[in-house]
Design a protein around this nucleic acid. Structure first.
Lengths: 188, 188
DNA sequence: CTCGCGTGTAAGTAATCACTCACTTATCAA
DNA sequence: TTGATAAGTGAGTGATTACTTACACGCGAG
């Protein structure tokens, strides 16, 4: 009970906004303090280091993303439909939460060294779908981790090219083509 | 004529070795000078900045990679075989030139901001193969840039997972599976 | 009331880093 | 021999940055 009497929330909000816009490395503790309207020292009352602050925020947002994806899987138990829903959710998230998506990807790929090894929830969700499909005989047999990596590669690279303007930016058309292609990759 | 009387070569060699091992950002000009056995000032006799040094080295190595790939395409003009040779070459390069591969990818994806926009030669090579296949009616019709992005995603993400030990490290088996999958993606 | 503790702050601090500059040395053409 | 020029040097330099520290404040328990 009792509403927060600390500035921890302000620290997190400011840091997230800046991490999303400029990346973790390019965001200084000074930036964060300025934006939060506090002093730098305050950050260290609540987090032991800038990195642990970033880790904490990353974990929160990865969770948010994972839940978003799961929302897309509620209405079906058919592996094929689940795969399609998963991909559609991924694209949708990257479209309506552009900055958050970029932050998650950057943090996961390069900016954070610790954390998330083998922990990447969205990947686990995908692997589960693939395993289920294989068990039901809808998908062809292959290493599910490899299949997951390949599907993930198609999705992420396509989004990357969309974002950097290297392919025509039409989310619907592109999503449809990616959907079709991924089904070809895994079906029997 | 005249063998080099400057230390430019030493600068490049030292920088490449360090960039490959630690990345561009983590390599300091001091590191480079130490390894090359020269003083920091010398670097600036030959390059206007650390970034321009990195760009120069990146361009050289991207070229090297592109030529390596082209070597795999010499013995066929069948789009399907060319695609397979391209992928096999990509995997082979990532295996026997691990550090160089990592350097190229990291530099391209995150470390260098300028350069290489729309310039990524290996991608252009892939796009050409896909366009040829479509013209000959071997591949299905679709935006070749999108198709290229998807195939590239499969390749790169798989290599990434191989390198980080998230899928069984058996280059031959994995390459074979990726080959098969990519063919499924694009064939009619 | 008061003591202690959690919170906040301003002003550091030490380290790092890319880059510069005044000066020296080597090369070679005239 | 000379003198112009390119190459090399290494001790700075200024800017930046994550993090620390000494102190102030206010609230709630006893």
């Amino acid at each position: 009970m009792s509403r927060p009497i600390t500035k921890k929330g302000e620290v997190i909000d400011a840091a997230l906004a800046l991490f999303m816009r400029k990346g973790i490395k390019a965001t200084t503790t000074r930036d964060i303090a300025l934006r939060a309207g506090i002093s730098e020292g305050t950050i260290y009352r609540h987090f032991s280091s800038k990195e642990s602050l970033a880790e904490s925020i990353f974990a929160e947002n990865l969770d948010y993303f994972a839940k978003f994806l799961k929302g897309y899987l509620l209405h079906t138990k058919e592996p094929l439909e689940m795969l399609q829903a998963y991909i559609a959710g991924f694209f949708e998230f990257s479209r309506i939460e552009q900055r958050r998506y970029s932050f998650i990807i950057a943090a996961h790929q390069t900016e954070l060294k610790k954390l998330s090894r083998g922990n990447m929830k969205p990947m686990q969700t995908l692997t589960k779908i693939l395993r289920l499909g294989q068990k039901q005989g809808v998908f062809r047999k292959m290493d599910t981790k490899l299949a997951g990596a390949m599907v993930m590669g198609v999705i992420m690279q396509t989004i990357f090219y969309l974002k950097t303007g290297r392919i025509p930016v039409n989310y619907d058309a592109v999503t449809a083509e990616v959907l079709k292609t991924c089904v070809r990759m895994v079906e029997k």
